[in-house]
Write a protein that binds this DNA or RNA. Structure first.
Lengths: 182, 182
DNA sequence: TACTACATGTAAACGGTTACATGATTGC
DNA sequence: GCAATCATGTAACCGTTTACATGTAGTA
């Protein structure tokens, strides 16, 4: 079973809006899909090269004084077809995400009840911080990006994050309760 | 920042209960933490070797006619200390799990509303199947393992899975609703 | 006859992060 | 003077999966 490279589709998806440089792609990911998707330069630049090799994108090199060349990547028709085909394809299997907290809780019998509660409390704190940043993003989208044709889809990914994080916080509270009764 | 090898701690945690072979470890993972943690033989066997190198475990080789040697690994005192120290350490940062469905939904404007709904419907189906297997596991634990000292902690990891999957199904339903109104 | 369970392991490749290297400009 | 932003990229390494190799015993 060959593994498909999702980084490629992430970049193609961004290039569907407009041509971008590697640097701009990184920034773009940082303030849009960051809460469920990340890419490093170590992935972005080689993938951009691959996109050109496969004729899914073309480069325009702009010379700039004293700076490295600015390489602007544009998606080709072939790239658009490839991207749309990927988009339509259903997700084959739900992925199992490795969860370090659960691994520690699974082995919880090796610690005291108090130590386990402490672990969960600290995790819950981090989840509440995360919920705050998601809520800030929502406010930004609603006040500044409501007219964008993508707005509804962006909001769907956000509400997913909010629901999951809230469920996790709820689990933390319930679990602490249960452990206190031991 | 050096990356810690969680596979090592996964194996040490299992060896805390009793000595095991690589094969038994694989099986053990398959019917306990499978819903949030997986390890392949390509990870297990080399890690077992490493555990012995670091003196966190010792091997006992049992010769068996016509079969490969059975290598039984036991945790050492040094290994127990290492494991407990890891268990106590708080989770530093919540990991961002890459989510292919959300990536596709984020780019949803490139498809029709119906195509996006179809994508979510199919995902929801898979989530409902997953919930069924989690519920079966719960039934098994409650009817067959209630006396085990680890029972409460095992149930916590299970209820986490159930809550998250239910939240995801809820998100699917709400999202389909929202898309139908477009 | 074929599949499953038992039991070991390796090699290649993939996917991803981190650290490094370079250097101009702008603003505090 | 220092940090941030713009802008390119590579190399080393880590973590993980997949496919391969080997072979017996029991069962459907």
């Amino acid at each position: 079973m060959s593994r498909e490279n999702k980084t490629m589709y992430t970049l193609l998806g961004l290039l569907m809006y407009s041509p971008l440089t590697g640097y701009e792609i990184k920034r773009s990911i940082e303030n849009s899909i960051k809460h469920f998707w990340q890419e490093s330069y170590g992935q972005i630049y080689p993938t951009l090269k691959k996109l050109v090799d496969l004729e899914f994108a073309v480069v325009q090199v702009e010379k700039v004084d004293g700076k490295p060349d600015r390489k602007l990547y544009s998606i080709t028709e072939k790239g658009r077809v490839e991207f749309i085909n990927w988009l339509k394809k259903p997700i084959e299997k739900i992925p199992i995400h490795k969860d370090e907290l659960l691994l520690k809780i699974f082995y919880g019998q090796n610690l005291t009840v108090e130590e386990n509660i402490e672990q969960i409390v600290q995790y819950q704190d981090k989840m509440e911080d995360f919920l705050d940043t998601l809520n800030s993003t929502e406010e930004y989208l609603v006040t500044r990006r409501k007219k964008d044709p993508n707005f509804d889809y962006w909001m769907l990914t956000l509400s997913h994050g909010q629901l999951i994080v809230k469920a996790t916080i709820q689990w933390c509270e319930e679990s602490i309760e249960k452990l206190l009764k031991k």
